[in-house]
Design a protein around this nucleic acid. Structure first.
Lengths: 173, 173
DNA sequence: GTGAAGTGCTTGAGACTTCAAATAAAGCTC
DNA sequence: GAGCTTTATTTGAAGTCTCAAGCACTTCAC
């Protein structure tokens, strides 16, 4: 994607782009393939077993772990690393399915709480084992324990660098 | 997502699910956060600079490297790890923008070739340096060379396990 | 308090993805 | 070479995501 290309004819006076090395390039493509395939795979499985894409499923899991199984919309969006708008649409959809319910926030009249319903909880109970197996089968059963540690470190580094609050670093242009 | 949960009440006679360990769980969440944030980040940048999501950009790059800058639809879909249907829609959109053109396949009348236009090539030349910088800034400049190697190995392992042809392994249920 | 600015959340339109169904051309078998 | 199956691709509808407004409430400063 970001390779030292045949294009990028360097007759401008821009500073020469630091193209990716061969290894970086191979790694980048492997990353794109792995993440594309894994997301598709999990989406397909959860669509079949729970009738929703896996980000929606993650939303329900997140709620299930919150005190009283409810959270402010903004906190939920931050926890899931998605925009409020996307969350709003997602909750609307999950509300229609009956897995989530909205409640007014007592302390702030602008606020809304997303609440996991009993039906939602029951659905998680049913589908969680299958989902764990899918994640294991695609990821953890294929990696060595060292690789799991490495992947965790790498992902934390990437995620940290992309948190919204780091929004105006130079490479964000 | 796939944790040892409060739900999953184990009063059934199913085999006990192998819940994720703490470290696996942390790694899994870090993975989800990193991939979500990185995809959003690159999408936003490329939407701004090239007017398309980064998978479409990847499509153009892939074409730019092919002999005569053209490829059969099916090969392109496989190379990008996306479905033919998605590719079909994507090419239709890129055709409207003028970056890609379709051609009949001489050897197989069912076939179509996606061809990168000169305008598409020029657009890549313009935007590639910025895109490399974005990928570097978010990923390679933050990882050690060892981590880049590790990430490559890990992603290749994941991707290999999810190739379409491995479609009927037990954990795919 | 009152107005200005900020925060929390939703909405609608347009773009993208998925899934299932449709078309058209190969290839295979008798 | 006539059917049957398979392969290559497209289409349309339904669902999801993004972006830019929009509305309602809160906070801050005077």
């Amino acid at each position: 994607m970001t390779e030292r290309p045949a294009y990028g004819a360097d007759d401008t006076h821009e500073p020469a782009p630091r193209w990716l090395t061969d290894e970086e390039q191979r790694t980048w493509r492997a990353y794109l393939h792995a993440t594309t395939l894994l997301e598709d795979h999990l989406d397909r499985l959860l669509q079949r077993d729970a009738g929703m894409p896996h980000i929606y499923y993650g939303l329900l899991v997140h709620l299930s772990e919150a005190p009283r199984r409810r959270m402010r919309m903004t906190d939920l969006a931050e926890g899931l690393k998605i925009t409020r708008s996307r969350l709003s649409h997602a909750v609307a959809r999950l509300e229609k399915s009956g897995w989530v319910r909205r409640e007014e926030c007592p302390s702030d009249k602008r606020g809304q709480l997303a609440v996991l319903t009993d039906e939602g909880f029951a659905m998680l109970s049913r589908t969680a084992p299958g989902h764990v197996e899918a994640v294991r089968g695609a990821l953890f059963d294929r990696l060595t324990p060292e690789q799991v540690t490495q992947l965790g470190d790498i992902c934390r580094t990437i995620a940290t660098g992309l948190q919204p609050e780091c929004g105006d670093l130079p490479w964000r242009r």
